[in-house]
Every structure is written in C-alpha cells, then in structure tokens.
Design a protein around this nucleic acid. Sequence first.
DNA 1: ATGAAAGCGCTAACAT
DNA 2: ATGTTAGCGCTTTCAT
Lengths: 341, 341
Amino acid sequence: MFNKVRPTLRDVAQLSNSSIKTVSRVINGEPNVRPELAARVQNAVDQLNYRPNFTAGNLRRNPGKTGTIAVLVDDIANDFSSRIFRAIEDYSRERGVEVFAGSVDSDPKREVALVKNFASRGVDGFIILPSNSDHSYLKTQINKDCPVVFVDRPPAKYEADAVLTDNVGGVFNAINTLIALGHTRIAYLGDTSSIQTARERLKGYKKALSKAGIPFDEEIAQLDLRDGEKAAIFLNKIFKSKNPPTAIFAGRNTLTDHAIRFLGDLKLRNKIALIGFDEIPHADLVSPTISLVVQDIEGIARQAAEIIFERMGGNKSVNAREFRLPTQFIQRESGLLKPRS
Amino acid sequence: MFNKVRPTLRDVAQLSNSSIKTVSRVINGEPNVRPELAARVQNAVDQLNYRPNFTAGNLRRNPGKTGTIAVLVDDIANDFSSRIFRAIEDYSRERGVEVFAGSVDSDPKREVALVKNFASRGVDGFIILPSNSDHSYLKTQINKDCPVVFVDRPPAKYEADAVLTDNVGGVFNAINTLIALGHTRIAYLGDTSSIQTARERLKGYKKALSKAGIPFDEEIAQLDLRDGEKAAIFLNKIFKSKNPPTAIFAGRNTLTDHAIRFLGDLKLRNKIALIGFDEIPHADLVSPTISLVVQDIEGIARQAAEIIFERMGGNKSVNAREFRLPTQFIQRESGLLKPRS
DNA sequence: ATGAAAGCGCTAACAT
DNA sequence: ATGTTAGCGCTTTCAT
C-alpha cells in the first residue's frame, strides 16, 4: 500500500487511523477537527510526504476547471512575447492559476492546433496574440464559458475582449515631432499589410502628414516590407531618387534594425532622422542613439490578465470591449536630427 | 443534461444510444466497434461538439501522470531563459506533453515554492535552471519517480542529470586569442562568486594565462561585479592604475554592456580589446562590433528535453550524468584590437 | 462487438 | 467532530 508512486488521502487516513474526509479537512485547513486528531493526521502527512493531487481535486471541486490558462504568443523566445507572458505569469500565479505557453510562430494552423490542444487540457481561459484572420473556430473549439482575451491584435469574426496599443496615436505623435523639426519628406517602412496593426500605424503617419498639410507620397511610404531584402531595396530606391527623404519612420523593430544598417552603410546615420516603433535592444548604445515609440507591454499584459480573471470569475454581463493603451515616445538623438539644408 | 458547461462521454453515449465505453473506443480509435455504430457515435460527438477531458482521462490512464512538465527558468522575459523554454516547448509538444513556465527571479525561496506548486499539479518532470545552492528539498517535495534535469548550473546536494556549458573551455579559447594578439594584461570582470558558472569561467581565464606563462594578477581580475556600480568602480580603478590592461574579458552579458559603456565614455572603444561571454543584442551594430563567446542555448535545451523524456520513459538505470556542451567563439572587431605599442 | 462496473484521487453532500 | 457515500470524466477490467 505504501510503496506506491505517491501517497494518497487514503494512505494518510489509514496511517493516522482516521477517514479520508478528516484528512481532507486537515489538508485544506477546514474547521471541525479536534486538535489532537489533526496533529495525528499531520504527522502521517509528514511521514508519508503526502502532497495533494491538485488535478484530481479540481475534477470534483470545479468540474471543468483546472486552474490553468493558456497564453498563445507569437514566439516565446522573442522579447515582446516573453514580456507579455511574464507579466501574465506573475498576475496569474498570485491567484493560484498556472500558465501554459504556446508559440504560434505566426502560423494560423498552429494557432488552431494549440487552441484545440489546450482546450482538451481544460484550460479555464485563453489569452491570445493572434496570427489568424478568422477566429470563428473558437465558437466550436472551446467551451461556451471559456473566456478569451486578445492581445495586440483584435479578433476577427469572433466577439471577445481585446487589449491593444494605440498605434495611430503613437505614430501620429512621433511624426509630429519630425515635422516640427522641419521634416517634410519622411519615409515610412511598414510591416505586412494584412496585419491590422501595420495598417493602423500607417494611418497615424498619414494623419500627421495630413494635419501638417504635407501630401502623402506613396513613393516613400510602403507596407509589406517585413522581409529584410525588400526593405533594403525600397530604401535604396528612395535614397537614390531625385527627392530623397530626410527622415525615416520604421513601423516595426526589425525594420528599425534594417534602417540603422542601411544608414550605416551609406554613412548617413548622423544625417537622416530615424524613429522606430517598438523597442530595439541597445537603442541607447548605437550612435546616434535611436528614438523610439514603445508600447506598454507590461501594461497590456496586466490588463489582459485582469480581464481574463474577471471573465473567469463569471462576468458575462459586459459585452466584448476594446482597450487601447497609449504608447510612450522615447526621444533620443536619431529623432532630433534636422533636415539638411 | 445537454446544457452543461461541456458535454461528457455520457452525453455522447446517451445521444448516440450506446455506452460510454463504446464512445471511448471511437474517440481513441480502438478496434472492435461496428462501423455503423462508430458513425452514429461520431455523429453525436460532432453534434455535441464533444472534446475529451484529457486531465480526467489521465487520472485513470497514467495514475499520477498529467502529460505536463515544468520548466523553471530565471526569468522567462530574458533572452537566455526564453530561448531555453522555447526549445523545450517544441520538443515536448511534439511528444504530446505541455509545458508550464516558472520564473524564479534568482530567488531560492521562489524556486522551492514553484517546485512545490508544480509538484502538486502533478507534473511528470522538471527542468530547472537553478537559483538555489541546496536542492536536497527535492528529495521530499517531489515524487520518487519524477525526474529532474538541471540546466546551466549543476544541482547541489542532490543527484540529477545536468546539462551545462563548457565554461572553462569557452573562456580558455577566447583568452588564448587575445594572448596570441600580444595581450598580456587582460582584465577579467566576473559575476557573483557563489555561482559555479562564474567560478568556472574565471578558471578558464586562469588556465589560459597559466599556459602562456602570464602570472595571474588579482588586481585586474575580479568576481562579484554583477552590480553595475561595482563594475564601473573596478574598471575606473584599473584603467587609472600605472599598468592598465590592454584587453577586457567580460564574464557575462550585463558585464559586457558595462564594459562597452565604460570604454565609450573614455573613448577607448577602438583601443582596448573586448570579448564578452554570452550574447548581447546588436553586438554587430555597435562600433566596433563585439567579439563574443556564446553558448549553444538551443542545444542545451534540446539535450535537457531529451534526457527528461528518457527519464520519464522509465530509464532509471543510468546514474546522474553531466553533459558539457561546447561554446562558440564569434570573432568580431573588438576581439581583434591589438595592444597599443 | 458491446457494455456494466470498478476505480484514479479527490471534494461535496449527507449522515452520524 | 467525524465518517460514509456518491461522483467529477475518464480508462481499465471483466462480463456478455
């Protein structure tokens, strides 16, 4: 009996000469146990090194609940994803809920596969940084009462809470500072156009130009430049044109990298202004230091965690909401370069 | 009956006019079900949108097993930890095992708390990047047959497999290249001395000096410099001395950062050679580009994952093993600066 | 080929 | 204050 893999309530009850319910009471700190008996039970617990099987308990305690949530990010190994995850991890653990991580790798199929997988494990909620453009599959693949919160990008064809960044406002402000410095020819490097975030950021750029009365010129503002090769070709083209830009806005961290390298190759780092969206490591070590529009990653994650717990707590009354968190503009040297006279 | 949170085997059996065992057979693709019946069952499954409760099944299938492992890293938001985690995630998911993440934050108490937490959840194994200097608590806090694999640092007072980096060899090689360039005064910045990894790296440094017949001078080689303040003071001191170093080896990524900043402040970036241990982001964007000794992070994680699965598969025969994975030396500009004549 | 019954480790509901 | 019983959703064992 005692040479099993792991002792159970029954073993403890037997050793302490009590019943499993009494042991359960002691374990869970419930009242109505005589101190003497409690001590005897505790003794047996210690002796057997008993630890409750949380999973089994949940089966009866909260039928269908496991005290876990799944966080689906793009790639836990990248900075944005892992910081999102970490903030959720902390929030959840404080509340007795553990977190599974799933890396979607921008693959819609993988997103679905991961959701199914975690649904089968009975997670109590999902926080998803989506890669899919159709989330209607959630209607059948997860429980009716299993809440989903979207992060960074809104859901499509599915109603759920979303915590997003104010992309338009963030870019708008940054472009305004460039315009205030006298820039009128500002190049825009954007991410894949199918990503709403990328479109929103471009919108912020257009809005700022429009406000200043600067016409939008698609020759120097382009989306779908995620691929480094394409970004390089685009930059080459516009900088060799008769009317090259005096500033660059990079709509994504990898694009900021490309821009820095490109400007470095052409010895233009101190001549062309540059502002990037999202953090890049060591932005303050490069010369010139790089001005950035950064997202409140921990804020987003925390908000998402709060909402999922609110929903898991049973709040179905409120309709799906959309939260927009502000960005922060970190002005450094590259964003202060004036247009060459 | 059907308006429950989630349909069960019983619901499917009832709807399809069969028994739960038959449904179970269909779900799990077991033989001995008449195609006609199977179709009826499948129909009910689809209609109810039934998905098996994996957790409940495990209770009976593999008593004590949950198909999960816990990966305890220092901080999932940092690069090293998240890359370790990601590699393990992929390896595990391919094998039907999901992964919990726990960030220990270099806090021994947190390590113990997390282990207890996950043990209660019945994880089938642990991969730990330890912060503790005493792992004897594992003897009582986890099941006898629950394997643990240590990563990056070996266990203390506990027998378990460990997958480590060849710190001595990595530093040894790097210092050799500096010596070959003519350096004889090489400063060493080391991490906290209580960390074995830090001591090993210093050992590699000493070994290289010794091989070249260069006496070890503790004036310019010091551990316990994790704190940026201390590192700055140390660097200031040695560079103002009568016999300053011509090269620096930084035993950790944060120390490499400090060294770069320090050299930048003194306009010495192109005069003093620098090699760092561990990756730093944008090492190839800084000027001069930074030479680094880097660990095979994915290799380590993969090896750890292989071992934990081997052990979970029941291999108790082999004693605890220690694996040492080689580092890679990435030579860039900073490591090629010669001593000033 | 099919199903009834027992039981995984626990908690809830109900005795005593 | 303590214990007994049923049952969470599933798989296993054993009948049929």
